[in-house]
């Protein structure tokens, strides 16, 4: 005997809920996002180059100042070392204090320093 009110309707219709945006939309979205990202990377690379240029030039502008200060100190140490050498070698005949071992008038910084 059928139940009162009859049988339930037969479920034959497809049940396909919305599955989100289509493949084309996702692909397009990802492509657009990547394109924007690469655009930013490109801009950033150009900018990085300019930042590096700025940094390098800030250092170049400081070179004369720092070199001048260092030179004064180096000269002071040189003169002190020369005086010390004269004092130590004063009993050795024929010793020229501060004489280079090279036959070359070109300046060459000292190879060693005395740690006091």
């Amino acid at each position: 005997m059928p139940p009162s009110g009859g049988f339930d309707a037969i479920k034959y219709k497809r049940n396909l809920p919305l599955r989100g945006p289509s493949g084309i939309v996702i692909l397009g979205g990802v492509t657009a996002l990547c394109a924007y990202g690469f655009y930013r990377v490109g801009k950033g690379n150009l900018e990085k180059r300019e930042l590096e240029r700025e940094k390098v030039w800030s250092r170049i502008h400081l070179v004369p100042l720092l070199l001048a200060e260092g030179d004064r100190d180096a000269y002071r140490r040189q003169q002190a070392a020369l005086a010390r050498e004269k004092e130590i070698m004063k009993d050795v005949p024929g010793w020229e204090a501060g004489k280079s071992v090279y036959n070359n008038p070109k300046y060459r910084p000292g190879e060693w320093v005395v740690v006091l």
Binding site: P64, L65, A68, E69, A74
Partner: peptide, 13 residues
Amino acid sequence: DPEHCLKEGRRVT
């Protein structure tokens, strides 16, 4: 040579 440019160096400083 550090000795060579002491004068110019003082001007810079």
